[in-house]
Amino acid sequence: MTVIRAWLVLAFYFFRDLVLSVKDVVVTVLNPNRPIRSAIIAIPLEVESDPGITLLANMITLTPGTTSLHVSDDGKTLFAHVMNATDETAHQIKSGFETQVRRVLT
C-alpha cells in the first residue's frame, strides 16, 4: 500500500467515525432519556512511536463523545473516556484507528 493511499484510508476511517459519532451525540442530546453507558476504557497499544500514539490519541479526542485521557508510563496502554461504551469499544478503536495509524507510520 502506498503512503498516500494509507493516509487516504486513515482519513476515510476518521471521517466515517466522525459522522457516526456526531449522529450518536445528537441522538443522545435530543433524547435525554436514552441510556448512556459512559466509561473509561483501557486500550492496549501496538503502535509504539510517540507520533503514532499522539496521532491515535488526537483522532480519538477529535471524535465527538470520546476523549483521550492518559497514556501509561510504558506507552503500552491508552486510557479514554467514551460516552457510549460497549464491550467492543476498545477492539473497534484498535481494529479501526490504530490499525490505520500503524499503516501510515510504517
Rank of each mutant, 00 (worst) to 15 (best):
M59Q: 15
F97M: 08
N31I: 01
T54V: 12
F97S: 07
I53C: 07
R37L: 01
E88V: 05
K23C: 01
F15M: 13
V22P: 00
P35E: 15
G65I: 05
L78K: 10
I60F: 04
L8K: 02
A42Y: 12
K76L: 05
A39F: 12
D17N: 15
D73Y: 06
L8A: 09
S21A: 15
L105A: 10
V29E: 00
I43N: 02
V9Y: 12
I41V: 13
I36P: 00
A6N: 15
Q92I: 11
T67Q: 13
P51H: 03
D87H: 02
G96D: 10
V47N: 12
M83D: 00
V9T: 10
R37N: 08
F14Y: 15
V104G: 14
S95F: 07
I36D: 00
T61N: 13
H81K: 03
V29K: 08
L10R: 09
I43P: 05
R103S: 15
L45V: 03
I4F: 14
A80P: 00
N31L: 07
T66G: 04
L105Q: 14
L45F: 03
T2C: 10
V3P: 12
T28Q: 03
T2Q: 13
N58R: 05
V104W: 04
F79N: 01
L78M: 06
R34I: 01
L8T: 01
T106L: 07
E88W: 06
W7Q: 07
K23T: 01
P44K: 15
S72H: 14
S21F: 06
I40K: 08
L55I: 09
A85T: 00
Q100G: 11
P35Y: 11
D74T: 08
S72K: 12
Y13A: 06
Y13E: 11
F79Q: 08
T106F: 10
T66S: 09
N31G: 14
I36E: 00
P32W: 08
D17K: 12
T61E: 05
L69N: 11
R5L: 12
I60H: 04
A57D: 04
R34G: 07
F97C: 06
V82Y: 00
F12T: 03
A42P: 15
Y13N: 06
K94Q: 15
L10H: 06
I36N: 00
L18Q: 10
E46Y: 03
A85Q: 00
E88P: 02
A11E: 01
D73L: 08
I40P: 06
P51Y: 03
D74F: 11
S38A: 14
M1A: 15
I53A: 02
S49V: 09
V22Q: 04
P64C: 06
L56Y: 08
L56V: 11
T54I: 09
K94L: 06
R37A: 05
S49T: 15
T86F: 00
T61C: 09
L62T: 05
